[in-house]
Design a binder for these strands. Structure first.
Lengths: 338, 338
DNA sequence: TTGAAAGCGCTAACAG
DNA sequence: CTGTTAGCGCTTTCAA
C-alpha cells in the first residue's frame, strides 16, 4: 500500500514547495543542484518515494509491459521471458506476466484488462483457436503496441519475431527421410496458430520432394490435455505404424517417448523421433533427443527491443513486419539410422 | 497509453453524472440495474474502460503483486510461478515478475522500485548473499506484505512456505548410504540462504547417524556460473573420488552428469547421484535420475494464498510463520546399488 | 531558480 | 437511486 508520506509533507519538512520537490525527482534542470541534493537526502531519510499512480495519472504512462503466453514450463518460454525481462529492466520497465493455458478466451480477457493504461506495450505468443482476433483491435485503439514472438496471427498487422520454422521443419523431416524413414507422422499443435501451419508445411514439402505420400492419417492434431495426447499418440502408433515421428513441440515428443516405452518400441530402432525443443539436456535423454532448437532468449530480446523501438517512436506501430531467427538443428541418436 | 475517453465524456454521452457511471463499474449496489446495463453497453460501444491509475490513486491499491526469484528456467520456479499466477488471477490480481540472477544487490534494487505503491504484496524466493536484509524493512514500512517461498531469510519475520528440506535431505543421503555409498559429496548452493544450510544439515545428520565422517573436502560451495561449477565438480571428483553425490539443486546434478561423462565414469556404478529437482522427465534421463521433488506448484499456491490472507486482513503481517510442504522422494537408477 | 495553482480521471461521502 | 463536491498525490504551466 502506497507510502504514507507525500510530496507535500516532504516539502513542508524542508520548507520548500511541492513543485520544487517534484522537480528533484524528475530530470528537470530547473532546479538548484544543491536543493535537489538536500531534497533527495531528506527523502531518503524519511523513506519517501513519489507515488507511482499519481505520477502515471499525470504522465499518462505506466513503464510496464505485459507478456502473454499460452503455456509455461518449457524451456522455450522460460528463456524467452528471461530475455524479455532483461531488456525491459534495462529500459527501466516492469514486466507483467499472463498465462492463457492455450485459451483464446482467456487471452481476450487479459487483453481487456490491459487497455486501461496498465501497460505501455504487449509481447505475446498467440494462443490460437478461432480466428476472430477482433479483441486485439482494442490494443490498437488504445495505442498499446503489440509484438508477437513465436506464435503469431497472420491477420494481425504488427511486428513479429519468429523462427525459420518452415525451413527447420523441412530440414528435420528431410533428415528423417535420409535416415531411412518412410512413414513419418507429424504431431501438430493447434493448426490455427502460425507455427501449427508453417511447421507442417515444411514437413509436407520434404515428403513431396522425396516423393513420399502425404498421408493425413499420419498427421495428428493434438489437444492441450497431456492424457488425451498420450492416448492419441498411442493409437496413432498402433494403427498407423509410423517409422518416425516429428513433434512440433517438446511436450508431444515427451509423450511419444513414454508411449514408445509402454509399447516396447525402441527409439530409434523401431521409431525415430525429432522435435522442436529448447531443452538443454536433450543429449542426456535415453536416447539422446534430436531437436530443432529455437533461439528463445534471443527471440525475447529482439521482440522486446522492437517493442521499445515502437514505444520510442523509432518505428511505426501497426505494420506487419516479420523477423525470422534461425533455429539450430541438433541431430542426436533419436533420429539416426541404426 | 491510457484510454482517450474518460468517465466524464461517457457520462455526458448518456446524460448522466460521472458518479453514476463510476458506480456502474464498481460492485456498488446503489445503482439501477437498467442504468448500469445502459452504461456498460455504451462503454463497450465507445471502447471505454476506467483509467487504472486514477482508480489506484483514489483507492490506494494496485491489485498487483510481485514475484522475485533468483533464477529462471528450471521446472521448480516455472511451476511455482504458475501456481502464483493462478491464485493471483482468481483474486483479480496482476503479477509482476523479477529475476535477480542470484544478486542480492539486484534484489534490493527491485524492492526499492516496489514500495511506491506499485504492488500490494511481494512473493519472493531469496537470492541470498550477505546477511544485511535491511532493505526488506522498506516493504514493512510501506505496509507491503512479503511472503517467502522456498528460499527465505531467517532474520526476516514473515510468512514462508518451504519444503521439508531437512528431512528430505536426510532421507536422500540415507538412501545413498543404504545403497553402499561411503564417500558422499554434497554440492551446496549459497550457504547464506536457508536451503543452502538446511539441506546440508540433513545430509550431515545422515552421515553422523551412519557413523560416516563429515569431510569438509567433500562439501562444495558452488557459484552461479555454470562453467566454474563444472570445473569445480570435476576437480572435486578427480581429487576426492566420492562414490556418490548429493546435489542440492538440479543444475548441479546436470553438471555432474556431464562431468561424469567426460571422465568416463558410469552412474551409478562409479558414482551415485541424487538431487533436488522438479524435472518431469527425470525418468527419461540416462540413467534415470533419483530426485527429491518439491511440490512447486502447491508452494506457489500456498504462498499466494497466504499473501492474500494478509492483504485481506485474515492474518497479521510481519509474523514469522513457516509452513513446510512435503517433498516426494523418487529413487530411480542414478542412486541405486549396482 | 522557486512557488502558486490548475488539473490528470476517478471515487466516495453527502445530500437530495 | 442519482448528482454534487471535494479531494487522491503528483506534474506542469505560468508568474514571480
Amino acid at each position: 500500500m502506497a507510502n504514507n508520506i507525500t510530496i507535500v509533507e516532504l516539502a513542508a519538512a524542508l520548507g520548500l514547495s511541492k513543485s520544487t520537490v517534484s522537480r528533484a525527482f524528475r530530470d528537470s534542470e530547473d532546479i538548484n543542484p544543491k536543493t535537489r541534493e538536500k531534497i533527495l537526502q531528506k527523502a531518503n531519510e524519511l523513506g519517501f518515494s513519489p507515488n507511482l499512480y499519481a505520477s502515471n495519472l499525470r504522465g499518462n504512462k505506466s513503464h510496464t509491459i505485459a507478456i502473454i503466453i499460452p503455456e509455461f514450463g518449457n524451456k522455450f518460454f522460460s528463456q524467452a521471458i528471461k530475455g524479455i525481462e532483461w531488456v525491459a529492466r534495462n529500459n527501466g520497465y516492469h514486466v507483467l506476466i499472463y498465462v492463457t493455458d492455450h485459451s483464446a478466451e482467456k487471452e481476450a480477457d487479459i487483453i481487456r484488462t490491459l487497455v486501461n493504461g496498465r501497460v505501455d506495450g504487449v509481447i505475446m505468443s498467440g494462443s490460437g483457436e478461432g480466428n476472430n482476433h477482433e479483441y486485439l483491435k482494442l490494443l490498437q485503439n488504445n495505442k498499446v503496441p503489440l509484438v508477437f514472438f513465436d506464435r503469431y496471427y497472420e491477420d494481425v498487422p504488427t511486428a513479429c519475431i519468429t523462427g525459420n520454422d518452415f525451413e527447420s521443419s523441412y530440414q528435420a523431416t528431410k533428415h528423417l527421410i535420409t535416415n531411412g524413414a518412410k512413414r513419418i507422422a507429424y504431431l501438430a499443435v493447434n493448426k490455427d496458430v502460425s507455427i501449427g501451419k508453417i511447421r507442417m508445411e515444411g514437413y509436407k514439402k520434404a515428403l513431396e520432394e522425396a516423393k513420399l505420400p502425404i498421408n493425413e492419417q499420419l498427421i495428428l492434431d493434438t489437444s492441450n490435455d497431456v492424457h488425451v495426447n498420450y492416448q492419441d499418440i498411442k493409437t496413432l502408433i498402433q494403427i498407423q505404424h509410423p517409422d518416425a515421428i516429428f513433434a512440433s513441440v517438446e511436450r508431444l515428443a515427451m509423450s511419444t517417448i513414454r508411449v514408445a516405452r509402454e509399447l516396447h518400441l525402441t527409439i530409434p530402432n523401431d521409431l525415430k523421433l525429432i522435435c522442436f525443443s529448447c531443452l538443454d539436456i536433450a543429449d542426456m535423454l535415453q536416447p539422446s533427443l534430436s531437436v530443432v532448437k529455437q533461439p528463445a532468449y534471443e527471440m525475447g530480446i529482439q521482440a522486446t527491443s522492437q517493442l521499445f523501438d515502437i514505444l520510442c517512436g523509432r518505428k511505426p506501430d501497426g505494420i506487419r513486419n516479420l523477423l525470422f531467427l534461425d533455429s539450430e538443428l541438433i541431430f542426436q541418436h533419436s533420429s539416426r539410422k541404426v
